[in-house]
Every structure is written in structure tokens, then in C-alpha cells.
Design a protein around this nucleic acid. Structure first.
Lengths: 250, 250
DNA sequence: AGTGATAAAATGGTCCGACCATTATATGGA
DNA sequence: TCCATATAATGGTCGGACCATTTTATCACT
């Protein structure tokens, strides 16, 4: 007969649970640095051994990593189980990049639709901020900054979906494709017309999310991503997707 | 370039490795009580915090259990030596589970749509086979076999999308939820009417893919998965709907 | 101004000693 | 023998201290 565990009353468990929730909710993202042990002691009002036990437990579970003198950092829990095998796959089979792109696009449509449903005021503000940053970078013809801003814009949308799995997987795929993306981005942005259309599509996505219409957001994302896909496939043929087709989707 | 792990050389690691070896070799059998922390301090010539760290690490891995005043004992079941941090994050966290489910559903819609476009004759035959196996298991009221068959059916669809990344991520999410899904499945299938409706939905998905209509396939998948989501939420805690209810009630 | 070495601060790792809460064991009386 | 109590053993928590490493700030030098 298996009875209840009864005892969650260890201080370190309470601490580690709290930290785990911060990681799950996305407040602490992979790569982020945790407060130092002594700061946590002050903030939580517990002793350092208790804090250490909590961090030890998280480290044993592979959720954080600690370096003496450095600090404690949030580990990426998705990478080992999902992305690493994908990275291996990509190494052996570069053609699979289009598969990953396809996958990412599906996730982004999903994220856009959920973001429209669940984005808080703060989320919308953040998305708007990223959108404007992207527009500025584009206007300044700063390709590298624009690529970063584009990733930040799409990640902000993913975070606004308030779905931790979606956020983590999207981020992982972004990281996975980051190198490839820059060159693609450069090739895309060489055409001012394409650049402008992409900006408009971003604006449609942004407006759809702000207006809270999940279907519109999903369609806007789909339009944008299928346009990107078509443009990448038809490189050297800037007129491959004209504005009317992009607006109507395919 | 991946360098060597250098040297952890943490005292607690050396201790925990030594204890782990004792357990692995059978010197310490499940249920055995290991020496008290203070005894280990004397025997190993290290400080008590180091011993505690080592024991904490073993406890986090589930290899030993400690009771205040009682002592530390080798766990009865030491099978799960490897721990998936993600699975740990999901345990006792319904929100996280529904996040992963949501994510999986989005991917499955995508897979259904692509499967409709790209499925070969062999793919369609395989999907049909899995579909019938699932129907048989359901008719036989064999819940465990039905759960396996359901996974096989959806995985066959993912494979038919001919997208490596989609297949891989879908499989990862399936594995992640495998433990949780069985109980969910049991709760769903207790209702014959629900069981029948799910069968019909599977059939719609199957037919849409065979007919080669991506939009129909996507819609069929969406209908199916939102129905599953609604049913699970309705079976569980009615008060847990909050933000998710709007997302699924479309 | 840029650069590189050096000093200072921050941070995790280790250790000590103490006390508390819980459990197991020994003790003693019925 | 049996049960309640007292005692001992054990893990849990705490505070402080010091060390090793890393990061950051400082400053002299070119």
C-alpha cells in the first residue's frame, strides 16, 4: 500500500520548487544567471546551507550549472532531449534545414495565435518595442542588428503565448538555425521591396496579436512565413511572391 | 570543438561516486541503511557538509532516501538512474503538461496537413493499418494497447509528413508525456460516447490525409485535438480552466 | 585612447561547531 | 510481558569563517 509522501516540509525543497517554477514560467531563461547564494539568502530569509541544498538539487537534476567564482546559470532543459539530436541530424543531413524551418514556422503560427489570446499588456508593449526596434534596424540597413531584432520579435511573440514548451522549443530552434539564418537574412534583405513587404507582414502579425484575434494572428504569421519560405526558395527571383499573393496567403 | 570536462574534482562528487559504486556493486543492497553522516565523516576524513552534499545528490537522483532521525537508506527501486530534467519539470505540474500537450497538438495539425500533401501510397497504407489497430484495441476495451496504438497512429501521420524535424520533435513530446498519457487515456475512454467520437475523429483525419486535402486534414486534427483538450479539462478540475479554456473553446 | 597587467570584489566550495526536530532504542515500572 | 517514558542517534537547519576561482575594476604604460 503506497501512502502519501506527507512531507514536503524541507526548506530546500520549497526553495528549489520556487526556482523551478521561475524556470518553467520563463522568468528565468536558459543562460540567465541566478542571484548569488548570498542574495538568495537575503531575499528568502533562509540560511545559506538551505539555499545551497536547493541549488545542489537543481544541479543534480541538470537544471542549473554552477562554476566557482562564476555564478549559477540556468541550463537549457530542452536542448539535450530535443535539440541535440536535431543538431546531429542537421550535421549529417544539411537538407533537413528546410524541415526544421517548416517546423519552426508551424510553431510560430501556433505561438502567434496563442499570443493573441493570452498576451498581457506588458507582453503587447514588449512585442511593440521589438517590432519598432526591428523596423529601425531595417531602416538603418543594419543587417546584423536586424537579424537579432527579428529573432527578438518572434521570441517575444512566443513568450506572449505563455506556453513554456512553445517558448523553449522555439528558442532552441532559433539557436539551432542562428548561423544559417543570418546569411538567409542577408540574401532576403538585399531586395528593398522584399524588405518592405516583410515589414508590413510583421506589422500585420503585431496588430493581430494586439487586437486579440487568434485566427487573424495565425493567418498573418502563416502569410509571413510562407512568404519567407517562398522567397528563400526563389532566391535570385525577387518577384517570386508579389504582394497580392502574400496578402491572400496561399 | 568540444573539450574534455576538465576536472569537477568536487569532494562531494568523489564521495557520491564512491557510494554509487558500492550500490552498483551490490555491497549496499536496496533497503540497506548506510552509515550515518557523522560516521561517513570519520571514515572518509571529510567535513559533514561535503558528505551531506554527496547524499543530497544521490537523493536527488533517487538512489537513496533520508528520514530525519531515521537514517539514510538505499532506495528500493534504483532503476531510474537517469533523470530527464524536463520530465521532472512536468511532474506534479498540470499547467506544464497542458503546455506540452498544446505544443504537441500544434505540431500534429502541421503533420496532418503535410501528410495530406506528401503521403506516399505506403504511408497511407501504414496509417490505415495503425488506424484499424487502434479501432480494434478500442473495440476490445484494451486500454493499454489502445494507448500504444493511438501513439502509433499519430506517429505514422507524423512520419508521413516526410519532415525529419517534425517527426523527431513529435516523438520527443510523445515520450515526454508517455507516463501521463496513460492515465489521461484511461479517464477519457471510460466514457463509451467519448470513445466513439474519438474514433470518428480519427477516421476523419485518416480520410482527409488519404484524400490529399491538407486544409481538411489540418481541420480534422484541430477538431480532434481541441476535443481531447476540452474533454481532459472537463474530466479534471473544472476550476482549472482559467486562461486555457478560451484557447480550446473555439 | 587603447592595452595589458594588477588589485579588488564577487562567488561558489569547503569546513567547523552548534542547536533543533524527529526517530529509534534503551530503560524502567505495571 | 507490555507499554510509557527517557535517552541516544540521526538528519535538518543555522551562522560564521576561510579558501579557490572567476569576474570586474583600476591603473600604469605605450
Amino acid at each position: 500500500m503506497q501512502l502519501k509522501p506527507i512531507k514536503p516540509s524541507k526548506i530546500s525543497d520549497a526553495i528549489s520548487e520556487q526556482l523551478k517554477e521561475l524556470i518553467r514560467s520563463g522568468t528565468l531563461k536558459p543562460g540567465d544567471r541566478l542571484p548569488s547564494e548570498r542574495e538568495l539568502v537575503d531575499q528568502l530569509g533562509v540560511s545559506r546551507p538551505s539555499v545551497r541544498e536547493a541549488l545542489l538539487k537543481l544541479e543534480a537534476r541538470g537544471m542549473v550549472t554552477s562554476r566557482q567564482g562564476g555564478g549559477t546559470y540556468v541550463a537549457d532543459v530542452l536542448a539535450p532531449s530535443i535539440v541535440n539530436p536535431l543538431a546531429d541530424l542537421l550535421r549529417d543531413n544539411p537538407d533537413a534545414i528546410s524541415d526544421v524551418l517548416e517546423c519552426r514556422h508551424g510553431l510560430e503560427e501556433l505561438a502567434a495565435s496563442y499570443a493573441a489570446l493570452r498576451a498581457t499588456a506588458d507582453d503587447r508593449e514588449l512585442i511593440q518595442e521589438k517590432f519598432h526596434a526591428l523596423a529601425d534596424a531595417n531602416a538603418a540597413r543594419d543587417l546584423e542588428r536586424a537579424a537579432t531584432a527579428d529573432a527578438a520579435f518572434h521570441m517575444a511573440i512566443a513568450e506572449a503565448s505563455h506556453n513554456f514548451a512553445l517558448v523553449h522549443i522555439t528558442r532552441s530552434l532559433f539557436d539551432l538555425l542562428s548561423t544559417q539564418m543570418l546569411s538567409n537574412w542577408e540574401r532576403l534583405m538585399m531586395n528593398p521591396k522584399t524588405c518592405e513587404e516583410i515589414h508590413d507582414q510583421h506589422q500585420y502579425i503585431f496588430e493581430a496579436i494586439v487586437s486579440g484575434d487568434p485566427d487573424m494572428a495565425r493567418n498573418a504569421a502563416h502569410t509571413h512565413l510562407s512568404y519567407i519560405g517562398r522567397s528563400l526558395r526563389g532566391l535570385g527571383e525577387p518577384d517570386a511572391g508579389d504582394r497580392r499573393r502574400a496578402a491572400l496567403g496561399d
